[in-house]
Structure formats: structure tokens, C-alpha cells
Design a protein around this nucleic acid. Structure first.
Lengths: 357, 357
DNA sequence: TTGAAAGCGTTACCAT
DNA sequence: ATGGTAACGCTTTCAA
């Protein structure tokens, strides 16, 4: 026989059992509250006996702080994101926050989802795969709900963000490929209107231009394996096939390598150099040994959590853009220039031109 | 100047503006409530003007149903899980539930985390990477909170679950490798005390035994790339090196292949056959072309959501164990037996012995 | 330090 | 169909 669904004990139940007021129970569970050691002990004992734990919903109701952070994340097949999510989850929880997850679809607007999340009066919003509509951004601002973009920036720049050096990364890769003697570079874009893809491309194309190279060929891989494989086929079938490709993330870079080797019989890096972005675990697999720009994942997550808690505690904190330094991890998927690389902690890293000055 | 953090409009605000009672506002937002079309329209108009949306926290408080499902998931670098998480998130939201994520650490008990999640009076718990302590399982049962294990089972079997055919999968792989003429099989375990690894191993070892094969060699790869690579080195350095390895997930299988090829110079499948489990996207990459047992991810997620909603709505629903059929996708990483494979939807699939009868 | 009482923003149950 | 009122379980005054 089951069905004895007893409703959870409340503070009043505990109060009765401990012979104190319900307020006392509340105080016993509030750090730094004014309560004698003796009554607190009595309360805690009674609570233990009844299996009492304060109802977070009621607490959120009265304090008007939910201690919930809404997190938007999609594109989870790009391993950068699951890792980020796991770290965010742990970090938020360590600071007493819950993580309410929502996963916007690539194509459509995230606004309806966002609204549902806002219904929970979340204390903050971390968006890792969507940008806000400006209408919703304004709504959040007016409601005093901090919004933080993770690994993206907004066009209007009126929302705080934490990112890696997308543009500098692209520029470094341009330098690196140029130094490697490549003459016909290509860029494989991710999702066209994402700030990450745009910034990486801007840095790359800008860097090539400065070095007197022609503008790179260009295809779109949507940050997905299949789309990237199709883009790779188009790129490699051209008369003027590129001798180097920078793919806007590692997943697309692996697709590029797979197609180049198995469908076009190319040898990497002899016939084609491939560079990725994010330095996800697959980049270290021997089959790929992918040269890739490493974003500092854990520092980014730490910064995001720190900034978010600051935004929550300081309502009028100004919009901030935190950019964290990364570096180009040099491996075997792209020709290595004769000089310009340095060894760091057992790994090879491309030394930026500006550092040489 | 900002800082005008106006608190969100309440039902009372809307009522005042619309010239109705606060109860009317509530009814306007409750499907099937007894309210005239006219007042509803007036209310909705006022609500729109004020940007009002019902406070989910207050609603949860009074209805005693949070419409939140707690989801435990870790091991996100195994791509099976991010995909499952994304699907769970979408499916739950489509049914009006929020997803509260928590990510237990591999080693330590999930109980403390679970407690925090229960503080939110979640309507249900889906555990994809942890098993409950029996104490907590009992607590949940008493409190009437449905618990569902996803891709795992509990020892005591007193908790409902949704899984693929782990044991049958292991058995099929044994048959497949035996039919391929292999004589020295090995098994690479995942996390030792996980039901998935145990069941896959039981099926595999049992199948081999029935076919008169010796017990497989055995190493532990913890479901992780690095640990699996280390295990692979131990396995391949042996005098009696195996000629076939079944790895309990795809990630470990790729590690196995990488080590075999790049450190031992082995050719796959000529020198070594490798079989994985989960049929994650990487299995289709040409470099691996991994033979792998496909778990039906989307049906599993659908079943989980369906079962969970049923458990929520039917308090005394009995414990159920849903097992969903999968199949062994045959590719190039393991020797293909002369017969026994059939083509299905353009892919090659191993036909189970029991189907031949 | 303690208890009583007033909310927090809803839904649900009454009457009307 | 509508409005008044009592919860829901807690935190936070305010007196004592």
C-alpha cells in the first residue's frame, strides 16, 4: 500500500513540536538571525525529526528573490557548451543559485521561452546561445533583471557580456597561416548572424588584408557537422581550391578534415591546412591533432558567475564587457611556420605579432 | 539614469485598471475558468498595457504544484547526454514544465544536491546520471514525488526507469564478434557501478560464454577519453592482445581506436575490431566508421516525459520499467561477418539470432 | 531573544 | 459570471 502522500512538514509543524513560535523556526534557519543557541538547537532537532526543510518557493515569494538563474543554451553538440553548462551549474549552485535551463531553437525567436522563464522571477539571465530582442532587453532592464551574454555580444552593446577574444583569435590565425606560407585561405562561417562567427571572421579577414593577402574564400557551415561537410565539399571542389581553411569552430574543422581526407584524398597539412576554434577535447585526438584557438572556458565561467552576482547585488552596476585572453594551440593540422611558435606547459603556442614588439 | 526598477505588475494592479476584481484577473488567465468573453478581453487588455504576467512562484505556492522537474545530468562530454538533455528540455517545456538542472559529481553522493532541488517542491525528478540513495528514494516516495531513472536502473528496482536494451546490446555484440571469427575478445567497462556498464558487460560476457568463447579480457575506462586511452594501452600491450574490443560507450571506443592506430600501429579492423555503444554522431565520422549499438534516444526521451507526466497525474501509479529496442549499426570498425547483416534504411544492421528463428 | 501579526501574489471556495 | 475572502508557507516588522 502506498498513497500515504503526507504533505511535507511546515515551519508551523516544527514550531508546535519544538514548543516555540513559527517565527523562531524561521530564525533558526536564517544565518545571523537573532536567536539563542538553545532554541535553535531545539528547533533543529524538531526539524530533523519531521524531515523539515524550508520551502524555497515560499521563501522566494516573501523575499522577492528566487535565487534562480535562467540559462539559455543550445547547440549542445558543440562540446564547448556542455562543458560550459556543467561548470555554470556547479558554480551557480556553489553560490546558492539554481539553474533553470532553456534551449532555444536555432531558427526561431527565443522571446516566448524567455517570457516563461521570466514568469519565475529569476534573479538573472545568462544567455549562451541567443541574443535578446531589444524589446525584451528593455523589459529586463526596467524590471531590474540582470542579463549576461555568455560567449556572445549584442549588437546594441547595451547588455553585459563575457567572451573570449574572438576577433584577436581570427587575426592570430591569419598571421599564423600567412607565416606558414599559405596563399589561398578560406573561412568557414558558423551561424551567420552570431557575434562569434562575425568577430572571428572580421579578425581573420582583417588580418589577412593587413598582410597583403587576398580576401578569403567563404562558406557557411552553421556550426554543425553535416552542414560543414557540405560546405567543405563545395570549397574543395573549386578550381582554385584553398590551401588553408579556418573553421569557426572545432566541430566544423573536423568535418573539413574528414571530407578532405576521405572524399578528396588530401593529406593534411601537406595539401591543406585546417585550423579550428574552441580547442575542444577532440582537437587533441591524434587523428585530428587540430590547431585551434583555445578559449579559456573556466575563467569565462568564473567571470560570468562573478559578474552575474555583482549585477544582482548592485542594481545600478554599469554594463560591462569582459573579454578573456586565449591562445592559439599549435598542433599538426596546419603547417607550422619555421618560427613564431613557443612551447608553453608542454604545448606549442603561436606567439602573437604584438608580443614580439 | 536607471535604477527605476519598478516591481512587476500584479493581478491587483491589473484588476484596478480593468475595473474588475482581482479574482477576475486570475480567471482570465485560467483556461476553462468561468468568465465572460467581455471581461476576459478587458482584463487581457489591461494586462497587456501593464506588461502583466502571472507570477509563477505565487501560483506554485497556492496550487502546490511547481511545474518544475528536477533533472540530474552529468558526464556531459559523452554526447549521448547533451542530446538527451536538449530533447528533455524541449519536451518538458512543451508540456508546460520547467527544467531545473543539477550536475552531480562523479565521485560523491548526489544527496545534498538532491535535497536542494527538493526544496523547490519539484513535481518530479529525472535522474540521468545518478542513482538515488535508498533513503532519499523512500523520502520521495513518502512525499509523493515521482522519480524516474533515465538510462539507468536502480539496484532495488523500486524506482521507475527508462532504458535502452543494454544487456541485449551486449549480447548482440558478442554474437556479432563471434560471427566475425574473433577469438580473443575484451570488454572496456565504463563506470564500474553504473547499471549501464554492468548490464552491457553481463550481456556481452553471457553471450560469449553461451557461444563457447572464453571470458573476455577486461579493463575500465570510466566512460572517459583519457581513462579509456590508458586502458587501451594496457590492453594492447599484453602478450595475448585481444583481436576485438567492445567498449561500453562510443567515446571510449574512439579512444581505443586512436591508441590502437597511432600508438600501436594497428589497422582496424584487420588487426583489431572495435565496437562502441550509443551510436553518437562521431560513430558516423569516416575516420572511425564505428560499429555501435544505437539506443533510441528520442523514443527514450518521449517515454521518459510521458511516464513522468503519468506518474505526476496518477499518484499511485505502479513502478514501471520501460525498455526500448535498439539495434547494432554495422560499419567499418569491426570485421563484418559474411552473413547476418541486413540493410535497413540505407544502413547496415546486425540481425539478432533470435530474429532468425 | 521572543511571539504576534502583516504581508508576498496567487488560486479556490464561497456567496451573490 | 462575479467579487470577497481565506488560504499557501514563509520572512519581516513591531512590541514585549
Amino acid at each position: 500500500m502506498s498513497g500515504e502522500r503526507k504533505r511535507p512538514a511546515t515551519a508551523t509543524d516544527v514550531a508546535r513540536r519544538a514548543g516555540v513560535s513559527q517565527s523562531a523556526v524561521s530564525r533558526a534557519f536564517t544565518a545571523g538571525a537573532s536567536i539563542s543557541e538553545e532554541t535553535r538547537a531545539r528547533v533543529l532537532e524538531a526539524a530533523r525529526a519531521l524531515g523539515y526543510r524550508p520551502n524555497a518557493i515560499a521563501r522566494a515569494m516573501i523575499t522577492r528573490r528566487s535565487r534562480i538563474i535562467g540559462v539559455a543554451m543550445a547547440n549542445l553538440h558543440n562540446l564547448f557548451y556542455p562543458d560550459a553548462l556543467e561548470a555554470l551549474s556547479r558554480g551557480l549552485r556553489a553560490r546558492g543559485y539554481q539553474l533553470l535551463l532553456f534551449t532555444p531553437e536555432a531558427g526561431r525567436s527565443a522571446d516566448p521561452l524567455l517570457r516563461e522563464v521570466l514568469d519565475w522571477r529569476v534573479d538573472g539571465l545568462i544567455l549562451a546561445s541567443t541574443t535578446l530582442s531589444s524589446a525584451l532587453a528593455e523589459e529586463c532592464r526596467a524590471a531590474g533583471i540582470p542579463v549576461l551574454l555568455f560567449n556572445r555580444t549584442a549588437r546594441g552593446a547595451e547588455v553585459s557580456s563575457v567572451t573570449g577574444e574572438n576577433q584577436r583569435g581570427g587575426r592570430l590565425i591569419a598571421e599564423f597561416l600567412a607565416a606558414g606560407g599559405h596563399r589561398r585561405c578560406a573561412f568557414m562561417a558558423g551561424i551567420e548572424n552570431s557575434s562569434t562567427s562575425r568577430d572571428r571572421e572580421r579578425g581573420f579577414a582583417g588580418g589577412l588584408a593587413e598582410l597583403g593577402h587576398p580576401a578569403p574564400l567563404r562558406e557557411v557551415g552553421l556550426y554543425r557537422f553535416d552542414a560543414a561537410a557540405a560546405a567543405a565539399r563545395r570549397l574543395l571542389a573549386r578550381e582554385d581550391r584553398p590551401d588553408a581553411v579556418f573553421c569557426a569552430n572545432d566541430l566544423m574543422a573536423t568535418a573539413m578534415m574528414e571530407v578532405a581526407r576521405h572524399e578528396f584524398g588530401l593529406r593534411i597539412p601537406r595539401d591543406l591546412s585546417v585550423v579550428g576554434f574552441d580547442d575542444t577535447p577532440v582537437a587533441r585526438w591524434p587523428s585530428f591533432s587540430l590547431t585551434s584557438f583555445a578559449q579559456p572556458l573556466m575563467p569565462m565561467v568564473e567571470a560570468a558567475i562573478g559578474l552575474m552576482t555583482e549585477l544582482i547585488e548592485t542594481p545600478d552596476a554599469p554594463v560591462r564587457h569582459v573579454v578573456l585572453r586565449g591562445e592559439l594551440m599549435v598542433r599538426g593540422s596546419a603547417r607550422v611556420p619555421a618560427e613564431g611558435c613557443v612551447s608553453r606547459e608542454g604545448a606549442l603556442v603561436w606567439r602573437a605579432a604584438e608580443e614580439l614588439a
